[in-house]
Design a protein around this nucleic acid. Structure first.
Lengths: 191, 191
DNA sequence: GATCCCGGCTAATGCCCATTAGCCACAGCG
DNA sequence: CGCTGTGGCTAATGGGCATTAGCCGGGATC
């Protein structure tokens, strides 16, 4: 289904640049070289397009997170890898991440609940990771909740300003930001 | 002009919750107890409402920043105060900050340029602050640009999740987050 | 008391949009 | 060669929206 994929990609691009509400089916059609109504031969609705993008994004993010934290038992190392996965995803798939974060309010109810649940689960994972580090005396923060918000927000910020063609490589950003994360939770000695 | 202020406040609330595109003039009118068309006795247009909100927000943020950094010569103290002002604004005026960050793409051209210029100026201030600290050997980051993005994103994140009625007081968030900022740039010894 | 204007209202206006209906070309298959 | 299904098109449907026009009550001003 190359056509459907093209359409999803075009929609993603437009949702990112203009927002869901400001994007019309005609716009999406034009981006793949057909008229608006023809899109309905490939997708159920505009809303469905958004739902597909957002659920796939959250599922992928969660899967990457699970894989990252499964690779170590050390709290610091687990958080580092989780932060790396988080930042790398937000850099590499910045369109998906951007839309995933900003268009939740445009999702209608059967889907919004699911996406919010996945997001809450993701947030809880980070909070738990930080909590474990604090309990082990490895991190030093007064509020694990606040620290987890901070760490998550760092990644989301990457999705807003990162561009592939800058002087900053993906690896550079990932490395720096996971360093920021560890400093933030007080896991690092100053180098 | 209490009425105009009420309208701006209602628009701000709705733009935050539903987004600019998804908010109708009728919605805004209903929020202040009148019909949509009657709003035009008080405001020029929906777009003008957004422009007023966004330019006022950026101007206020910049003014607070200037006041904060003017109060010290020490790089660490200047960054701390700038971060405090940044976070405090994003907590106390979270609606304004939220809309200011998310609806830039809904602003049409005469205004968007101005708001983007103000925002660029604000970002440059932080970058300069961090650069100065690095030059003085007080901060330790490989990229002042990256660090400034991180610091700014932290504040913007606050505007997305902060609520006045939580267990976390404004001061608690401000203090924690400015601590995060200083740790992030490597200005803190681990305590 | 007449006038004026402020701030409401309802009813257009003109447009845009998502989605549906119904048509057609054509490619692959029998 | 005919059939069928795929994927395009245009036209219609039904609705919503920002904005404008034009009306009106009522309080302030003279």
């Amino acid at each position: 289904m190359s056509r459907s994929d093209d359409i999803r990609a075009a929609a993603l691009e437009l949702f990112t640049r203009r927002g869901y509400e400001a994007t019309t089916m005609a716009d999406i059609g034009a981006a793949v070289g057909i008229r608006g109504p023809s899109l309905y031969k490939h997708v159920a609705s505009k809303q469905d397009l958004l739902a597909q993008i957002m659920t796939a994004t959250m599922a992928e993010l969660l899967a990457l997170h699970q894989a990252a934290v499964a690779s170590s038992d050390d709290p610091t190392e687990r958080l580092r890898r989780a932060a790396e996965a988080h930042v790398r995803y937000h850099a590499r798939h910045r369109l998906e991440a951007f839309v995933g974060n900003r268009e939740i309010r445009s999702l209608t109810e059967p889907h919004r609940g699911k996406v919010l649940a996945l997001r809450a689960e993701y947030e809880a994972c980070f909070r738990e990771l930080i909590h474990a580090g604090v309990a082990a005396g490895r991190f030093h923060v007064t509020s694990a909740r606040l620290a987890s918000y901070a760490v998550l927000d760092l990644g989301m910020g990457v999705a807003t300003w990162y561009r592939e063609d800058r002087e900053l490589s993906e690896d550079a950003v990932v490395w720096q930001y996971s360093e920021f994360t560890l400093r933030l939770v007080g896991a690092c000695q100053p180098s």
